[in-house]
Design a protein around this nucleic acid. Structure first.
Lengths: 248, 248
DNA sequence: GGAGCCAACTTGTTCAGACAAGTGATTGCC
DNA sequence: GGCAATCACTTGTCTGAACAAGTTGGCTCC
């Protein structure tokens, strides 16, 4: 039980939706009903339902009762930023190995993404990730200079670098930005994943940052086609997903 | 401008960030400063900054001033849901043609996604989209029975079906869900896009719904690799993006 | 000079009340 | 029967106040 009232209410409503008490399309109780039932103010209830709305679970229109849009469990921030945390949360077995770990000057793009001076030395890591024993993803990550030492100290078969940083150095990711596109497998990708060159891959490039906005890592993850799908829900009031033109 | 105070404030702050008055990493004025400057209550200011936070522009931690995370313009809901609206917004020329438009019973998945009884007759549409004259995307859409007539009435070279529905029938999308993955081009995809079979494609499947939660369309859009990138920003408090395991 | 403490500042949470604006159903008129 | 006005209900916006909790920088003391 959190001591935070609105999260308590949000959690109870979320549980009620997931359990089917309020099926998709059903109306939620009115704000005043909920306020009375929880003996909270209307503002607190509004904060609770706003949380669920931002998760895409419910929708609302002025004048009409809130309705249930989806009936699904929500992933946490950690499950999106850490491949290992996600895989374990969904019940898959994950293995991975550092194939190479070298220090080198940052490329122009890496310096830009990591907010470092051009040419600063970063730690470049190449890893192959296995999901339930199958090669699934090739990960090429550039770690900022100030976390490089901590990453280098980790075991070669370390399951989650981000978990390790959080545990060992109290460095925790709070913000992320993700770029998703498709591309053909290069020769290294193909060799590692055991597929032919030119096979389709789903690429997720992402940067993670601390709560002060300081970038930690910039990563290029390439998934075997068909192995994973990304999903986003949006609404007229909250549009987290964007489309950009590529270079071609 | 808008008679809604908090949107006014949010807009002004957004403009200040985009124009560089507050560069990335800079601190925003405190809530009380802003409240005084706009002669608004602190609650209204908080609603304004919450808007920017949900857009990923700024971050906040209890006790410390809010900081600027990004410096980018935000897309609207319409620009994500309508290919034509997006393309025009970023200054590209878009063309498209209905290659086929046929009524047929919904498949199991289509009925599920559109919340229709199994076997209900839907309108299946196949379209090829050109960006600046280049074939870029193949779109296969199933329109729910109750909008089928309105879609059939449209011109064969209609640029935006969603715009047409909004203008002609006052049917407006308010909610959406998007599934993104990669796959190899099938023979029809390859012929339409002018590429070889097996070439990588970026697939975006999405369902659009009205403000009452009623699904309008379920679409399977396949982009040429390299032509577009999707982006999402997230934080520990707002995680709109999810990863799911595929069938393989 | 360095370590630890403290005080000012800032964001997070909650409350109670008020009015604006949109929705849905009922009512009454033609 | 159909149509329009009305009304109760519900969500959206805004205010002002209070206390909790985290951050930061300066100060004192050693």
């Amino acid at each position: 039980m959190g001591r935070v009232r609105y999260l308590e209410i949000a959690e109870a409503l979320r549980a009620a939706i997931l359990s089917g008490d309020y099926p998709v399309g059903a109306q939620l109780p009115s704000e005043s009903d909920l306020a009375a039932r929880w003996s909270a103010s209307r503002g607190t209830v509004r904060q609770a339902v706003a949380t669920l709305a931002s998760e895409g679970l419910i929708g609302s229109r002025q004048g009409a009762r809130r309705i249930v849009l989806r009936q699904e469990r929500r992933h946490s921030f950690g499950e999106l930023n850490s491949f290992a945390q996600w895989a374990e949360g969904v019940g898959h077995e994950v293995r991975s190995r550092f194939l190479s770990r070298t220090r080198r000057p940052a490329t122009a793009e890496e310096a830009e993404r990591l907010a470092l001076a051009p040419g600063t030395e970063i730690l470049a890591v190449l890893r192959l990730r296995l999901l339930d024993g199958e090669p699934t993803m090739v990960e090429r990550t550039a770690y900022a200079d100030w976390v490089a030492a901590a990453v280098e100290a980790m075991e070669p078969d370390c399951r989650s670098v981000m978990d390790g940083l959080a545990a060992g150095s109290a460095i925790v990711a709070h913000y992320g930005e993700h770029l998703i596109d498709a591309l053909a497998a290069g020769s290294e990708d193909a060799r590692l994943l055991g597929i032919r060159r030119g096979s389709p891959l789903l690429r997720q490039r992402h940067v993670s940052a601390t709560n002060t906005g300081r970038p930690i890592e910039w990563s290029d993850d390439r998934y075997l086609a068909g192995s994973v799908t990304f999903s986003v829900s949006n609404s007229a009031v909250a549009t987290p997903l964007e489309r950009h033109a590529g270079d071609r």
